[in-house]
Amino acid sequence: MAHFHRLPGPIADIWAWQHRGACRDRDSAQFFHPDGERGASRGRRENAAKRVCERCPVRAQCAAYALSTREPYGVWGGFTEHERLQILREGWSGELDVRGLEARLTTPSR
C-alpha cells in the first residue's frame, strides 16, 4: 500500500521532473502489470519498461519518488516493485540518498 502521507503537496516544482520522463507519452500498461501476468510475459514487459528507463533523464528522481512513497506497483526509475522492496530492505535512507541510488542504477540488476 502506498504511504500517501509521504507525498509532497501540490507544488509544481516538486513534480516538474515528471514532464521530462522518457515514459511520458507511452502507454502506462508497459510499466504496470495486468492482473494475472506472470513468468516470461511479465519479464518481457518489465525488461521493455526498463529499457525506456535506461535512457531517461530523470531516472534517479523517479526511482527516489517510488521508494520514498513506497509505490507498490509498476516499474519506476528502472526498478520493479520487487527490486524496490529489496532496496528498502537493504536500508535505502530516503530521497537524500540519491548517490547510493545512482550507484545502483549503473549496476546490472541481480
Rank of each mutant, 00 (worst) to 15 (best):
Q30D: 14
C56T: 10
W92T: 00
T80D: 10
T107D: 06
A66Y: 08
V75K: 03
R70H: 15
G9S: 12
G91F: 04
D25A: 14
F4K: 11
H82S: 14
Q30H: 10
D35R: 10
E54H: 08
S68Y: 05
R44E: 14
I11L: 12
L7T: 12
P34G: 14
E54D: 12
R26F: 07
I14T: 11
N47P: 00
V75F: 06
G21L: 03
Q30V: 14
G78L: 12
R44S: 05
L96V: 00
R44I: 08
T69D: 06
S28A: 12
P108K: 13
T107R: 14
R44H: 05
R38S: 05
C56R: 08
V75L: 08
E81F: 06
Q30P: 00
V52R: 06
T69Q: 11
W17L: 06
P72S: 11
F31Q: 04
E83I: 00
A29S: 15
A66K: 08
H19I: 02
P108H: 12
L7W: 14
A40D: 07
Q30W: 11
A22N: 07
Q30A: 14
R6P: 12
T106H: 08
G39V: 06
W92L: 02
L101N: 02
F79Y: 15
R110I: 03
C53D: 02
A2N: 11
